[in-house]
Design a protein around this nucleic acid. Structure first.
Lengths: 207, 207
DNA sequence: GTCTATAACGTGATAGAC
DNA sequence: GTCTATCACGTTATAGAC
């Protein structure tokens, strides 16, 4: 159902997504992409006639990938705590992969300066991520692996907000800040501190 | 010690700060400022020769204002809970004042695309804000008005992260999201739900 | 599908008159 | 301290050859 996918098109999306996370939407250009890709900017305009369309495509692909990830875990019957940690691992990878920010956070920070179609795509992505997390938290509470007050929706919103903020703050304050927030979130969910987390422990000691 | 402060200079800083919060650093220009101010862009270059300097000036003034605010409350002997809520009121004002984002969050989201001197200023601001909040939380814990696990520094980082993220998310998801996060933060600090918060209660009901 | 060439415009910034 | 005028450059985007 999708055979003639051009190789370049995906490469453009990869590069655009990466640049978006590094620089934000308004600070990367067709030139940046074309240079990194070794291709002329006209080629990019062939695949994505205008920048708004490219932006929307990046967000929608990101959301599709997220849905696939969720579906994969649901099929496997991944348990709530592993689900939560698998979710934490996503921004964690961003941070380790060159201090990237979360696309959602970047676009919401630039919300007043992005095209309307992108705003819609952002809203959808936000709703989908929170929907997923709400479910995981609610399941975990029912299985008594998480404890928290208020609705799962409210708690999910807090967790998503904290992760998004922490990832940004880590760009200024360093990796440790992000690990700290993850640890604090787990603490606040009543998840016991793990005994075998050597790296986390050393982080604790170092301040 | 500071008598000949040009009126225009402050007006430029006001406008730049506002534009920064609405559009981000890379999506506002000297033209935007000059149009809003009814002044030519050369006048702005007279006060701030380059954009990086303007950016730094905005951040540093913001930090000075924050310090003044803290000092004012410390002199008054404001109690921890009122301190916390006074702090919440800052981003709350941003949101109500045209869906503005927090300057810190915006700049950290754009961190890969802002000049070096601005990065330094951002790091300082971040450290100062968290320092203040850590103190307030620690005081509150000692007075048994807040309950939380972990160090006050860790909890402060979580709270700052959550507020920053929530303010951004609210641009896409609406005001309610921000109120929800504030309520959840208070819940997680063991602050009792207020009986007289009619608006908050109706928010709860509406979802 | 990718290229060269170019258009039309916004950007940060400077020189010099007033 | 603000203006007019202008510059060099980067931006998104298009036309048309290959």
């Amino acid at each position: 159902m999708s055979p003639p996918r051009s190789n370049t098109k995906d490469a453009i999306l990869d590069t655009a997504e990466s640049l978006l996370q590094e620089r934000g939407f308004n600070a990367f250009s067709y030139q940046h992409i074309s240079e990194q890709l070794g291709v002329k900017n006209a080629a990019i305009h062939y695949h994505f006639p205008n920048k708004a369309g490219l932006g929307v495509a990046v967000i929608e692909r990101y959301n599709r990938n997220f849905h696939d990830w969720v579906a994969r875990h649901q099929q496997r019957g991944t348990k709530p705590l592993a689900m939560l940690r698998g979710y934490f691992a996503i921004p964690l990878r961003f941070m380790r992969d060159g201090q990237k920010a979360c696309p959602l956070g970047v676009l919401e920070a630039e919300f007043g300066a992005i095209p309307d179609p992108m705003r819609d795509a952002v809203r959808t992505l936000d709703a989908d991520i929170r929907g997923f997390l709400s479910e995981a938290l609610e399941q975990g509470r029912q299985q008594a692996v998480f404890q928290f007050n208020g609705t799962a929706q409210d708690k999910a919103l807090l967790v998503v907000s904290a992760l998004q903020g922490a990832l940004q703050i880590s760009r200024a304050a360093g990796t440790k800040a992000f690990m700290t927030v993850i640890r604090q979130i787990e603490r606040d969910l009543g998840v016991e501190e793990q005994r075998d987390k050597i790296s986390s422990q050393s982080l604790l000691v170092s301040r």
